[in-house]
């Protein structure tokens, strides 16, 4: 019969912590997404941002639908492959990757929008979308590496 005790000794506590650590290590082993996940994410960001360049609301709306559906499909694929889901905006060390991405996103998008709409450089937003598609793929991978390190860290 299982123990429903209200106290524990030092050896039992150490064994409990070791079991918890082993469980987290098992999750770390399968937490990394396949390469195509990051490529697809980069393409989704590219198609969404590039759509602004056509200056047609229906195109942007359609691109947004594709983006949301694509993100949903990626989420389902990740859950199927790992059995779990982790919010990208969760508190902790992974926030570092999110902050880098947000700053990069704002800077590149502002430059691209300024060039396209301010200076009239047609296609600047498409270039901005391509520039942002690569870092989101890299940041996504970096984020998961930080998460895996966190899982392997001593509790």
């Amino acid at each position: 019969m299982e123990s429903e005790g209200t106290t524990t000794d030092r050896a039992a506590a150490a064994a409990d912590l070791a079991a918890l650590q082993a469980g987290r290590a098992g999750m770390a082993d399968r937490a990394m997404q396949p390469w195509w996940y990051d490529v697809a994410l980069g393409l989704l960001v590219f198609e969404l941002i590039s759509s602004y360049s056509l200056r047609a609301n229906w195109v942007t709306a359609a691109a947004l639908v594709v983006f949301v559906a694509g993100c949903g499909a990626l989420m389902t694929a990740y859950k199927r492959s790992t059995g779990f889901w982790v919010n990208g905006l969760r508190p902790g060390p992974t926030q570092r990757a999110v902050r880098v991405w947000v700053v990069g996103y704002v800077v590149v998008l502002a430059l691209a929008a300024g060039a396209e709409y301010g200076l009239g450089w047609r296609g600047a937003v498409v270039a901005g979308g391509a520039v942002l598609g690569v870092p989101i793929a890299l940041t996504s991978r970096w984020w998961t590496r930080i998460y895996i390190t966190e899982l392997r860290k001593e509790l």
Partner: peptide
């Protein structure tokens, strides 16, 4: 322990 590291499992 497993659930603490994720949003849902």
């Amino acid at each position: 322990g497993l659930l603490a590291a994720v949003d849902s499992m």
